[in-house]
Design a protein around this nucleic acid. Sequence first.
DNA 1: GGCCTGAGTTCTTATGTCAAACCCAGAAGA
DNA 2: TCTTCTGGGTTTGACATAAGAACTCAGGCC
Lengths: 161, 161
Amino acid sequence: MSNPEDNPIRKSPVPLEQCGAALAFDIVSDRWTWLILREMFYGVGRFADIQDEIGIPKSVLSGRLSQMIENGLVEKEPYRDGSARTRHAYVLTQKGRELTPVILALMQWGDKHLKDGKRALDITDKRTGTPLKVAIVPEGGALPLRRLTYTPIWDTPENKV
Amino acid sequence: MSNPEDNPIRKSPVPLEQCGAALAFDIVSDRWTWLILREMFYGVGRFADIQDEIGIPKSVLSGRLSQMIENGLVEKEPYRDGSARTRHAYVLTQKGRELTPVILALMQWGDKHLKDGKRALDITDKRTGTPLKVAIVPEGGALPLRRLTYTPIWDTPENKV
DNA sequence: GGCCTGAGTTCTTATGTCAAACCCAGAAGA
DNA sequence: TCTTCTGGGTTTGACATAAGAACTCAGGCC
């Protein structure tokens, strides 16, 4: 939203309470929340696994998860591994999953500007194998999330330096 | 990245330090930073205007701006309004501007899930007037940022309730 | 029953945020 | 020249939250 003159705009054209982005920052804005979302995006959902991988204090994780459940991004789902007891994993709700374009856009940005430009994750169309990315495009034509296939490529030989 | 069985994945396939998203969370990591980015996305760049609109303490704003300058997201640019002195506004660098798809994706998400679904900002192709959005699509075909036109629509009659 | 693993919770200390007071710089006007 | 005003910060102390470590609880197995 550039101003043809050099003078900065004095007030944003959309007030905070009408702006979806500003409202979203109340819910998804701190580093831990993002990191937790990333873990769940990858399918990691056990308390200890999340905690281990991102190195978050347990009390902080517990608090964030509660918040994310309350905000409808995450829910607790029972699962069993073998004969052990019923356990619970944290998984993204549909509402949480719809943050996928945001996470992927941030990933693209980070790959380009904070790394060497190489992506660590290939995203392709499940049906056609076409490589995908996040972009600003004419409305319509976006693939539904269930059509996405993710392929980690970080540990292929080219990526090992 | 769903797991066909019900067992959660134990470890994300891309380690933190290889994941562009995780790296980005170190840089854009708190609510104030996001809110400031949003202001600048809209072209608001004067210290006092940012401070007024998002209600951030001056010391916090000052510190965040310094960080964002250091991280290359923002730079200070001189400008003049009329005959007054040269002043400085904070503007997004190219690196910062390339967070536009992230901000817009978050806005779309927020409009849908935290509001009534109505967007407050129309995005259209400068050349064709085609409505645009953020989506996951085949590579290629994304519009460059300079082709985007933003039109606030929040205060049209339908939006006044 | 005890032991183990996993999922938290609690408490103390460290760090960040916030509000208010303060400072500096440049321009305009008397 | 001096004074006032606007704008852009900086500093300080109180308060809130985060972080680290210790602890508790629950369920299953031997």
